[in-house]
Design a protein around this nucleic acid. Structure first.
Lengths: 215, 215
DNA sequence: TATTAATTGCACTGACTGGTGTAAAAAATG
DNA sequence: CATTTTTTACACCAGTCAGTGCAATTAATA
């Protein structure tokens, strides 16, 4: 009678679920919701179609499971991104690193594909898009804000509006690059250009909010 | 024998094309490419399905026509956005106006929906997404750059890297708002918040590149 | 090994949909 | 008004696909 959570139980359903979600994720990312085919997903998961329907009642439920799993993962990354110590190295060095980490994380091809999927399905699944935004991009913004506030507490920078400042940081660093990446599937931007912009963004942020230069 | 371009000729095909493209645009924006239904598009256009197929050979061709038309329009807007005179009013006032115009144009709900569509179909139609990006967002960025360069020529601001500076301007002004708008279908952001950010972005830009304060 | 639960294979249904063929109606044009 | 071109109405085809039913098979578990 114990099925949920703990307890060993038959390991097969869990295993199947996992491989199906993995295959389905790839499939949905590639073809979108309507363009995806449950038969093919089953094949690619190495599982019978019937098993898919035994474990997920409908295509929509499967899609929701995929998005949920992806969101969970993203949330995890977002939560402990930018968590390291603060104030051990020169401010500009740490900000540059923060910028590069941020850019690397958000511009990661898989992450960009997830964004494309959710944005593309925003009309069909508004709740999913909204929740993803809340639990990934918004969380990342929060992590940045918290880190910047630690710098502010140290007196390195001045933050009249911490939320606004973190938005400025984030989009100075990767705004233009991300915008382009959403439209251009192929890995267009050479890594160097991306990094140059990230560093320039960090410098601009420092000019804006640094104590030594600003007000 | 004269069919293309000038010459009167039977007005019906042109009229049909126009109404079909209009209806199809709405439909594709709402349901995406695969989710759209040619029969329904015909109905909504008040036209027989056969007429659709007489004027556009396939669903894909129709979709391409829709995107092309949308891109044309966007290109037009982008081209003569930010064209007015420069240097007649105080710099900060003009920059604030530039920011508000920029934000209003890019965050326009229709524009956001087009972005969603193209981003969502980027895997299926990479060429369309790329071309849209080139002829709309990139063009807007160019218009901003040109305008900023005129301020630089007047000596009001200093632009070591005009392209980078225009990216900074654009994304300081609406980066965070746009990112959110892509995920949240409903008109979430109250106009006031949008405007506050735009103005704050313009001020930040001025801090960064203004001659009076910066280097 | 015996029991139980999960998985498979596969055929099948019903709805949907892109695209075509055709003959008649409607609307331009001269 | 006569001619020509476009549009319509409508039936139709073929392929696709979500979802089901079921008997046989396979793999956990005790």
């Amino acid at each position: 009678m114990r099925e949920t959570a703990s307890g060993a139980g038959d390991p097969r359903p869990a295993r199947s679920r996992a491989t199906i979600v993995t295959a389905a994720t790839e499939h949905f990312l590639e073809h979108g919701y309507v363009g995806s085919n449950v038969d093919r997903i089953a094949d690619e998961a190495g599982v019978s179609k019937r098993t898919v329907y035994n474990l997920f009642e409908t295509k929509e439920r499967l899609f929701r499971a995929v998005v949920e799993s992806t969101t969970d993962i993203a949330e995890g990354f977002a939560r402990d991104l930018h968590e390291g110590p603060v104030g051990v190295r020169p401010l500009e060095v740490e900000l540059r690193e923060l910028a590069l980490n941020h850019a690397t994380a958000v511009l990661n091809p898989r992450v960009v594909r997830v964004r494309r999927l959710l944005i593309g399905e925003a009309a069909r699944f508004p709740d999913l898009a909204r929740e993803y935004y809340r639990r990934a991009p918004a969380l990342v913004m929060d992590a940045i804000r918290r880190r910047l506030e630690r710098y502010a507490a140290l007196g390195s920078i001045a933050l009249p509006d911490a939320a606004l400042a973190s938005e400025h940081f984030a989009f100075l660093v990767l705004g233009a690059t991300l915008d382009r990446a959403l439209f251009e599937s192929a890995a267009t931007a050479p890594r160097a250009a991306l990094e140059a912009r990230a560093v320039a963004g960090a410098e601009a942020f420092l000019t804006l909010y640094g104590r030594s230069l600003g007000a």
